[in-house]
Design a protein around this nucleic acid. Structure first.
Length: 119
DNA sequence: AGGATGACAGTGT
DNA sequence: AACACTGCCATCC
């Protein structure tokens, strides 16, 4: 089986939509691309992304908020530098919470999205 | 053909 | 917080 070009492009689009100064996890990106539970595909799609696209690949971190390249590797330091350059701060090895995707709160889980029309 | 390998994640301890 | 284990799936020997 190969990774359908269609999937790859949806992933690229989602990554392109991550605003400056914020980060998003592989899993979250996969979900938003309509590929739930397939976080690994995000990494693969990113790996084969042409440089010319100018994707903000550095805004993609793992679920723990940490950079997935090995510590001390070139890619790791590059990613960290790019993030810090756009104002992202770290707490230890993880991106500070203020830059991560907002966790769904209990109210929303129980009551559903606020956009639902009131009776 | 089949096992190892990842730019991962969820759950359990 | 750090492991260990399992699910995941395209790629690469």
């Amino acid at each position: 089986m190969s990774l359908p070009e269609e999937h790859v492009e949806r992933i690229w689009r989602v990554v392109a939509s991550i605003p400056r100064g914020r980060v998003e996890s592989y899993g979250s990106i996969a979900r938003r691309a309509g590929l739930p539970r397939r976080a690994r595909l995000v990494g693969q799609a990113l790996r084969q992304a042409p440089e010319a696209l100018g994707l903000p690949w550095h805004r993609v971190v793992n679920a723990a908020g940490r950079i997935s390249f090995p510590e001390g590797s070139r890619m790791h330091s590059l990613q960290r530098r790019l993030l810090e350059e756009e104002g992202v701060r770290f707490r230890g090895r993880a991106v500070a919470r203020e830059h991560r995707d907002a966790p769904p709160d209990l109210d929303e889980l129980l009551w559903g999205p606020p956009s639902r029309p009131a009776r």
